[in-house]
Amino acid sequence: MSITKKDVAKVANLARIKMDDAKLEALLPQLTNIIGFVEQLSEVDTDNVEPLASVVDLNARLREDEVTDGGYPKEILANAPEELEGYFVVPKVVE
């Protein structure tokens, strides 16, 4: 199946990456090429095959439900682009 520039714009929006028209144009043939390449998977018979999400045959480990970490706001905020009085600062979201 073929993808269009509109599809690329939609995906860019889903991925929250700003893209001008030139960038969309440039990506269209590249993505078409890659998606065309992965489409050969459709020829594999996968009826009755369970999807493989993890190669580790380990059961999820359980632990006591107790606090084992935390209590260092300074470290958490150390790389924040903007912070104020122990909070991350973002552009206004609610008018």
């Binding site: 991925a15 993505l31 998977l41 594999v44 996968t46 493989l52």
Partner: peptide, 27 residues
């Protein structure tokens, strides 16, 4: 490029055709 491919493969309508399919072939 890779974020775009991945977002496309995970997006509504394509998830089964690409992502689940790939996980099955992975098995």
């Amino acid at each position: 490029r890779r974020i775009m491919i991945g977002t496309y493969a995970l997006s509504s309508g394509y998830y089964d055709a690409y992502y689940i399919k790939a996980q099955k072939v992975r098995r």
